[in-house]
Nucleic acid binder design. Structure first.
Lengths: 150, 150
DNA sequence: GTGATTTTTGCATATTTATTCAACAATTTT
DNA sequence: AAAATTGTTGAATAAATATGCAAAAATCAC
């Protein structure tokens, strides 16, 4: 599980910070209690299909980017499956319970891969709340996410 | 001018071939009579905001990618200005005359940055033909492109 | 459980990419 | 036109990233 949790954390980190190098990512992961080397990060990054893009300040940072490879999202799905405990719709909200520490990463890529009419998302450590325009859309999304769980 | 022509060629090359490394790009450019080193290519790639993305075969290739930096497209505009001689609409087509060898690169990124209702594009060495659904859209596009010329 | 098989990882290193610095070319200023 | 400024480049090298290989960990078959 450490593997999925780590990759989830990587998604969260690159979405919330401007990570310029794999060594920097290694340091951030260390702060989050993932003791890991650059070599493994290189592999994770390839698996997640991440790449560096140019920011407006002329620096490069890692980002989730639409790639040729559609299978890449399969990787995300497998993280999703490992991380998610339950998905429930309440009014216009969907509440997702996750393993500890994985709500953040999950939120980031549910956000990115915008398959659904999501207004926004907030998360704690093990809970993710997705906000929808209507109860109906929330129910649809909850169903879609539950289906994903296989 | 060699600079713009070279960068235009780079756009063409990465759009039509799977270029994996800067050295490979250097060899391709050599074939196209641009004698250039990897160092300069590294700079060109940064200027053009290109990055490597994962292909479905698990390899990386260079690609044009939507970045944070909107100024990036300014770079494209400046290549456009240097390359284009004239833009004319005829029926539902727009014919763009360019400097020799630059029609290909131009077509590639006009295609990518899909600002306009373009159906398709074909090009020779110094002529680029853009195909639109209607004469009206072709005329609009021709006007937009002429405006770009500053 | 044991042993076989597969997966994940770190280390060392190869490969790839970015940058420093000096030279040269182009452009502007005077 | 010379001098000064600015932009472009290559060579060498620094920095960053990927990978071969062996070891450790996890998973599976029995």
């Amino acid at each position: 599980m450490a593997r999925s949790a780590r990759q989830s954390k990587i998604l969260e980190l690159i979405s919330t910070k401007e990570i310029e190098t794999q060594d920097e990512l290694a340091r951030e992961l260390k702060n989050a209690n993932f003791e890991i080397t650059q070599a493994t990060i290189s592999r994770d990054i390839k698996e997640l299909g991440l790449t560096k893009i140019l920011t407006s300040s002329g620096k490069y940072k890692y980002a989730i980017v639409g790639s040729d490879a559609q299978q890449v999202s399969n990787k995300y799905i497998s993280i999703f499956r490992e991380a998610v405990i339950s998905v429930k719709a309440i009014l216009n909200l969907v509440v997702v319970k996750t393993l500890k520490g994985m709500a953040g990463g999950l939120g980031c890529f549910i956000d990115k891969l915008n398959l659904i009419d999501l207004v926004g998302a907030v998360n704690g450590d093990d809970t993710l709340m997705l906000i929808f325009p209507t109860a109906m859309l929330a129910a649809d999304a909850a169903k879609a996410l539950n289906d994903l769980q296989g």
